[in-house]
């Protein structure tokens, strides 16, 4: 069925990057920095899970009725599955508690994707546009914090982010670019033609912001 593809398939084996023997070490993260990193991974995992389910819903409704949208949706969905898997692995690696509302995110996201797709393909695209706008902004905020607040002291006297932070930053940068590409795709596929456009986009943006706030904490 369509849901079978939601299973985690991509098990990236823990890559052991060769480190030089006397690589400088970074000071430990403060409690606040650790709490912030936990929150970042928790909310991003929940968000990507949500995105995965939204596109599952859209694909479920639209793929057979509008064959010209099928490859477009498939491309977006595949990217979201990759994002989802990446954050699942990060979550396991850093032992971050997943959002307690995960069942709600799954049901809600699938319902949101399928529901807007049932209105019209344009409404589905408006949904994509709204979601990706909020997600892009949220990722940018996280990147700003990662850039400014992880200026750790190293054993060799220099200052800067640790390798872990650097890799997380580049991951988030990549994903942010992907999400903004989805936004462009949605606009190209007539998201503005959705009726009622403002109600759909503003409603979904609000839902996304509330969901982000909750997934960060609960």
């Amino acid at each position: 069925s369509v849901l079978s593809s939601l299973k985690i398939t991509e098990h990236t084996s823990a890559k052991h990057t060769e480190k030089p023997e006397h690589a400088p070490k970074c000071q430990n993260l403060s409690d606040a920095q650790a709490a912030f990193l936990d929150r970042v991974i928790r909310v991003d995992q929940a968000g990507e899970l949500g995105a995965d389910y939204i596109y599952a819903g859209q694909y479920f409704v639209l793929a057979h009725r509008y064959p010209h949208l099928k490859p477009v949706l498939k491309h977006i969905w595949d990217q979201e599955i990759h994002h989802h898997n990446t954050f699942n692995n990060l979550q396991l690696k850093r032992r971050v508690r997943p959002s307690l509302l995960t069942p709600l995110w799954k049901a809600g996201a699938f319902a949101m994707g399928a529901g807007t797709a049932l209105i019209s393909p344009e409404a589905a695209m408006a949904c994509t546009e709204a979601v990706e706008t909020v997600i892009g902004g949220h990722y940018n905020g996280q990147l700003r914090n990662l850039a400014n607040q992880f200026n750790l002291e190293r054993t060799d006297g220099t200052k800067g982010p640790s390798e872990e932070i650097k890799s997380l930053t580049s991951t988030i940068q990549q994903f942010r670019d992907d999400e903004l590409e989805h936004l462009d795709t949605a606009i190209k596929h007539d998201s503005y033609m959705a009726v009622p456009y403002t109600v759909i986009t503003e409603g979904i943006k609000t839902i996304c912001r509330v969901a982000i706030w909750s997934a960060e904490r609960i």
């Binding site: 920095q33 709490a35 200052k159 609960i218």
Partner: peptide
């Protein structure tokens, strides 16, 4: 979960109040 220490610390980080270089 909402008002605990972790949440307050992370909120402060989001506002850029603690380690901003």
């Amino acid at each position: 979960l909402i008002f605990g220490k972790e949440a307050r610390l992370a909120d402060a980080m989001e506002r850029g109040e603690l380690h901003n270089k």
